[in-house]
Write a protein that binds this DNA or RNA. Structure first.
Length: 603
RNA sequence: GGGCGUGUAGCAUAGCUGGAUAAUGCACUGGCCUCCUAAGCCAGGGACCGCGGGUUCGAAUCCUGCCGCGCCCGCCA
């Protein structure tokens, strides 16, 4: 209730000045009331008790009386404020429902659609950036889903966003894959995996490049343990790639590109797309890594190891642990992953005014080191959205060890279960094709939502039942509420009304000024009033789950409204209820889309 | 050993810049389709907020010490 706060603050201030209590941080104390039937905002009066030597209950009552006096003399207050009440030592402010409704319904700006105005800010969000060495799995999915959701939320907020994928086209992982594809036959690969007791490849994915190539990658990793010669061969390839050797980089490219394409196919099933792809090798080839290394040498933190390796000593910058050194150049003069990352960040900063990385919690130290190095070079640090891992009951997911749940399998299973559910509910009304498309939308939405609804910093264990949950706090619940808004509009139209015209009429007549005394209608209006504030908070704290929770609340409030307020009855349309339904429909549709949930019109 | 994060009903989570009776879903008990889709709605039971100290008028929230879990402390990526 930002608008209400803005109106109230000057008046509260003048009262507190009069009392001599304005030295306290009362603006922060003025918070959302816990009980929504007692008010929208509340000011606890306990801290004033000490200064005034009077009981808080008495102070609250005195303030309430004085405030009522001010209210009658001020048009802004008279218009927006329903009442001020002293309850248990709290000063509670309740906004007029009609005023709140007006905020949401009357504006012909983007607010009525649950969308922020253009901010003009350019935001670059780098996410996923997974090594292209095997199929996309559920462990990696948290990065992609969190990242893509941030991209969508930023767009809804009004920012201009670039979604960026950093392609790791050099280094050990790709080196092993490339070596394996050049040196092992299909029979050898299957023999190696078979004798290690690994499962056979799933025939369903026999034609998908990422699922095919990962067998080579896994076999080479097994072989490497017994044959040290492979390590040195791969090591040589890696060294050459880091020097920018074109031939090696080409063969790396041939090895990983089909795998990356396969991963991107899977991601597109989740509606995850990227605007730009940037290869790590770019920064070696264009010389910027070399320049970074040179510049870091003149840092006061710079140090030189016995064999000629360069590092920054970060103890003075708060880095603790066994090693406080950040190596940025090997003894042989070559760069390291993090060094290239520094060059990459400088490049990213050239194209945005806000830079966000989505990273697993295992990258926390690395990320801090890169930030310090950037500061040494006079560059800004990025914002980082960290997340904890999704693990399996058997432990951490690993492509190398084949301990993974493939996203392709999860999505197939989700869609299948969704199909069974639609068929059971609507099998006699809809044809198979229609039900299939509903199931596809429900499946991918549910998978995304079940990951995005928990706070990023909390780790969790993957369980099929949870990932595929369709009830309660879930994507299908949101989607279902949205379809209800659609079917109401459909019904109004089907009875011969021109919905657009009626909505315009409702706005013109300002139908919200005579708001009915309906608890569910009013609480729905209040939830809508908070929509953009929650969106902004969600973005600022990199916490999409806050917006997800809010959307669940919106859907559930709409369901209450739906129960109590028939929009059309005996052919007669209630303009206010129609307008509210239309506004809810946009809020839900845009909100769902921002979470990667497909807002279908029937299900 | 050190650093970062996390611990809330049987389960999964929200609340964590201190504020009123700790919120939601699953599961459990009971009720609601002649009514814009019941993937829904209503009512009910269920919580030493990991444990111990401290700060405060007031602590799930802040400080501190334990305990459990996760991640990190490579001239790997």
């Amino acid at each position: 209730m930002r608008e209400l706060k803005r109106i109230l603050e000057p008046h509260i201030e003048s009262l507190l000045v009069e009392l001599g209590c304005d030295s306290l941080p009362w603006k922060d104390m003025l918070t959302t009331a816990r009980e929504s039937d007692q008010g929208d905002l509340a000011l606890p009066c306990f801290p004033f008790a000490k200064i005034l030597q009077k009981p808080p209950v008495e102070i609250a009552e005195r303030l309430a009386t004085q405030f009522e006096g001010i209210k009658s003399q001020n048009t802004d207050l008279a218009e927006s404020l329903l009442f001020v009440k002293a309850i248990n030592g709290y000063l509670n402010f309740m906004a007029k429902p009609a005023w709140v409704a007006g905020l949401v319904l009357k504006s012909n700006s983007s607010r009525r659609f649950g969308r922020g105005e253009d901010t003009g800010h350019k935001v670059l969000i780098e996410h996923t950036s997974a090594n292209p060495n095997g199929p996309f799995h559920v462990g990696r999915a948290r990065n992609a889903i969190l990242g893509d959701t941030l991209v969508r939320l930023h767009k809804l907020h009004g920012n201009q966003v670039n979604a960026e994928y950093y392609v790791d086209d050099m280094g050990k992982q790709v080196g092993i894959l490339s070596w394996a594809l050049d040196n092992l036959s299909s029979e050898q690969v299957e023999d190696i995996l078979d004798s290690a007791g690994r499962e056979k490849a799933d025939p369903r994915w026999a034609d998908k490049a990422d699922h095919k190539s990962v067998r080579w990658y896994q076999a080479a990793n097994l072989l490497k343990d017994t044959d040290p010669d492979i390590d040195s061969q791969v090591g040589e390839l890696v060294r050459l790639s880091e020097e920018g050797d074109e031939e090696v980089l080409d063969s790396f490219n041939r090895a990983y590109q089909p795998v990356l394409d396969g991963m991107l196919d899977t991601l597109s099933r989740l509606a995850i797309e990227y605007d730009t792809f940037t290869r790590e090798s770019k920064f070696v080839i264009d010389g910027s890594v070399l320049q970074v290394m040179k510049q870091l040498e003149s840092s006061e933190l710079h140090g030189l190891a016995e064999n000629g390796a360069h590092f920054l000593e970060l103890e003075s910058r708060g880095i603790k642990g066994k090693s406080t050194k950040f190596f940025f150049r090997r003894g042989d003069g070559s760069s390291l992953y993090a060094t290239r990352d520094v060059a990459y960040h400088q490049w990213k900063w050239k194209q945005c005014d806000r830079l966000i990385n989505v990273l697993g919690e295992d990258h926390k130290l690395q990320s801090k080191q890169v930030s310090i190095a950037l500061e040494e070079l006079g560059s800004k640090s990025p914002e980082v959205a960290f997340y904890a891992f999704i693990k399996l009951p058997e432990g951490k997911m690993s492509t190398r060890k084949a301990n993974v749940v493939f996203m392709d399998d999860l999505l197939d299973e989700a869609e299948e279960r969704a199909f069974i559910a639609v068929k059971e509910l609507r099998g006699d009304e809809l044809d198979d094709e229609r039900m299939r498309s509903i199931a596809t939308a429900v499946g991918s939405s549910a998978v995304r939502f079940n990951i995005i609804k928990v706070a990023p910093e909390k780790g969790f264990t993957f369980r099929w039942e949870d990932a595929l949950s369709f009830e309660g706090d879930s994507a299908p619940f949101l989607m279902y509420s949205h379809t209800r808004t659609c079917s109401i509009i459909r019904k109004v139209a089907s009875e011969g009304h021109d919905v657009e015209k009626l909505v315009e009429q409702a706005i013109e007549e300002e139908v919200w000024t005579e708001i009915p005394d309906s608890e569910s209608l009013i609480s729905l209006v209040r939830v809508l009033g908070r929509h953009l504030e929650v969106l902004e908070k969600s973005i600022l704290s990199h916490s999409p789950h806050l917006f997800a929770k809010h959307l669940l609340l919106l859907a559930s409030s709409f369901n209450g409204f739906y129960r109590d307020r028939p929009v059309i009855k005996d052919g007669k349309v209630s303009l206010l209820d129609l307008l509210l339904t239309q506004v809810c429909r946009s809020h839900l549709a845009n909100g769902c889309s921002a979470l990667g949930i497909v807002p279908i019109e029937e299900m």
